[in-house]
Amino acid sequence: APSSAPSGSSLPAYFIKGSIIQLADGELKHVEDLKTEDFIQSAEISSELKIDSSTVERIDDSHTPNFAIVQFSVGEHRAQVSVEVQVEYPFFVFGQGWSSCCPDRTTQLLELPCTKLSVGDVCISLTLKNLR
């Protein structure tokens, strides 16, 4: 069964500092050492996945404690997508690194160095390549 972060967060274990991540070319890196280029190059190798730019348009409090609703404008068509996530959930911002709605909580729970996610930040997200 997939393990999760220590008490206080139900985020997956791969966001905990020190977790080992395998890039598409087989290289292993710690989650806290990942760079924008690692995601871009991995997506280029992938036959199924492509990276989209997702710009943060709004961040609102959720009715659920410790959750936030983040609205993104996704891809070249600027499709509006909202996700409800724990405030400590880290998104990877292009050229910047891990960012969350509550970076203090992310650092406390996951030990993952993190900055504050803000409106206008451009996050890395994935979509499926068109398979024809």
């Binding site: 791969y14 977790s19 080992i20 993104f72 996704v74 997508v81 990877f92 994935l126 979509t127 499926l128």
Partner: peptide, 25 residues
């Protein structure tokens, strides 16, 4: 005796959210 424990390795795409709008074409 201590049994060796395997260290989990996670694929890179686990870390990236799927924000896939409905594709239209």
């Amino acid at each position: 005796n201590v049994e060796p424990r395997s260290v989990p390795v996670f694929p890179w795409h686990s870390l990236v959210p799927f924000l896939a709008p409905t594709q239209s074409d």
